[in-house]
Computed example of a mutant assay.
Amino acid sequence: MNIIISFLLLIISSNALASAILQFPKLKCSTGTLQLNIVDVSFCPLTSNLERISFLGLTEKTVTILNNGEELTIGLNPPDISISNLHKKFNLTVHEFFLSLYEGTLKTDNLGLIKKAFDIDKSNKMKVYKKGNLFAFTITGSNVEYDRVYLNKIDSDMIYQITGEFDEKGVLDILSRIEY
C-alpha cells in the first residue's frame, strides 16, 4: 500500500513540476546597455558586445541585433503569423492557447501535431516565465531550427516573438533585458 501511495505522489509531483511557471530573472538594464524600443517592448543589449542593429521593413516592428557574433530577432507578430490563429480554432485567447499548449491540455486529438509544428518534443522543451501579467513562453533545444521566446500579456492578442540560437542560460539573459 505504501508503495502505491509513494508512486502516486511521485506521478503527481512530477506533473506539478512539469507545468511549473517560473519567475522572470532580475532586470539587467543599466549603464553599459542600450535601450531599444520595439513598439511596447524595450530590450537592452550590452553596448560593449553590440555589432549591428537592423530595423526590418518600413515600420520599426522588428529588429535584428548582432551581439557577440550571435543574431537575435525581436518582432511584433500578429497571431495569424506567430501561431496561425490556432487560438481561435480552440475558442481561446492567445494567452490561454500558449498555456494550454504548455500544460498539454488543448482539447484536440492533434496535440502531437501541434507540438510538432512548434518543435516541442523530448529534445526541445517549452518553459513558461511570468512577471506580473507578462508571460514568456520559451522553446529551446538541440533539434529546433531556431529557439524562440513568445511574449504575451494576459487578455492581449499581441505576440512579441524573439528568435535566435540560445540555450536556457541565453533565455534567462534575454528575459533579464526585457521591459514590457
Rank of each mutant, 00 (worst) to 15 (best):
F97M: 01
P25H: 06
I12C: 11
V63Y: 05
L106C: 07
N49D: 11
S48Q: 10
R52Y: 05
L22R: 11
F43H: 07
N49V: 08
A117K: 12
H87K: 06
K115P: 05
T93G: 15
L27E: 09
E70F: 09
K115V: 05
K89G: 08
V39N: 09
Q23D: 10
T93W: 04
L34I: 13
T64Y: 01
I5N: 02
L72H: 07
L22W: 06
T105Q: 02
D80F: 08
N2R: 11
S54V: 03
H87Q: 13
I83N: 00
T62L: 10
I3A: 11
F97W: 03
E96Q: 14
L101P: 11
I4V: 14
I5T: 11
K61M: 02
F118W: 09
L17D: 04
N110P: 03
I74T: 02
E96F: 00
K26Q: 14
K116Q: 13
I74Q: 07
D40V: 12
P79M: 03
S48M: 12
E60Y: 08
L10G: 06
K116F: 02
P25S: 08
P25R: 11
S54T: 01
D109Y: 01
L9F: 10
I83D: 00
N110D: 14
F7H: 14
E103S: 09
F43K: 02
T73L: 01
F90S: 00
V39T: 12
L101H: 00
T64C: 06
S19W: 02
F98P: 01
R52Q: 11
H87I: 05
L86Y: 09
H87E: 08
T108Y: 05
S84E: 05
N110Y: 10
K28S: 12
S13M: 09
F97S: 00
E51D: 15
V94N: 01
D40K: 14
L17V: 03
N68V: 07
